[in-house]
Design a protein around this nucleic acid. Structure first.
Lengths: 113, 113
DNA sequence: CAAGGTGCATCAGTGCCATAATACAGCGCG
DNA sequence: CGCGCTGTATTATGGCACTGATGCACCTTG
């Protein structure tokens, strides 16, 4: 009903980013083809391509035309650093205020681990 | 250009919720009128109304037609509990996994306080 | 009663998103 | 070379959420 439905291409992007960081798609290996990943996820190949392009633009994957897209060396660490900084700089401050407002502290978090 | 990362009416909703919890809009008091708040925030009155409706549906504010919308007694605590549960049950688990993936621990958070 | 403020309903417009159907360009392999 | 696999460009279309302008019903106040 609300904005729970983030755009599909962004969901796919996050999913792929997590997989790269966790080594599911190791450096030097090939990402699933646009068509294969689309079929697997039940999405449209173009939508997958749109998600892939984000990584290509950031230099995290390398395109070999006619072959596939390969994870660049150091991509996992680069991605982790990038997202880490983004989280600490932008999300955490707001999150901190919000937790304070909702009266949530470390003990509450541990209770829900 | 109309597409922010987050819909305006949801931003307004969060902003108002925070104000209610913090007592800026005390219980029994009247919320700013739709038109007044819209002018103040540079938004459309209808967009503000959409944000207000969420609170009305949840029974946190009471509408007196022709007069205004009043904060119901106990609204602040009810809102805090609701958001608190929502955070712990839905957001925190994902956040926890994400922080682990990004190699963020308590020390990092304290460093950015 | 008249006037101004309130919320709210209706209709219309806009832009992003997702999908679809093709078509094209490059590469590897038999 | 021929075939099948890659990514990519093009165009078109439908859906849906968000936003916007106008007008109406209701209440209080003087």
């Amino acid at each position: 009903m609300t904005q729970q439905s983030r755009p599909v291409y962004l969901k796919l992007r996050d999913q792929i980013a997590a997989a790269i960081i966790e080594g599911v798609y190791a450096e030097g290996e090939m990402l699933p083809s646009v068509r294969a990943f689309a079929a697997e996820q039940g999405a449209n190949p173009l939508t997958v391509a749109k998600a892939y392009q984000q990584f290509q633009a950031d230099g995290l994957v390398e395109v070999q035309r006619g072959v596939g897209m390969y994870v660049v060396a150091g991509a996992a660490e680069k991605l982790r650093r990038s997202e880490r900084e983004q989280f600490l700089a932008e999300e955490w401050p707001e999150l901190r205020l919000r937790m304070k407002r909702l009266d949530i502290d470390a003990a509450d978090l541990l209770a829900h681990s």
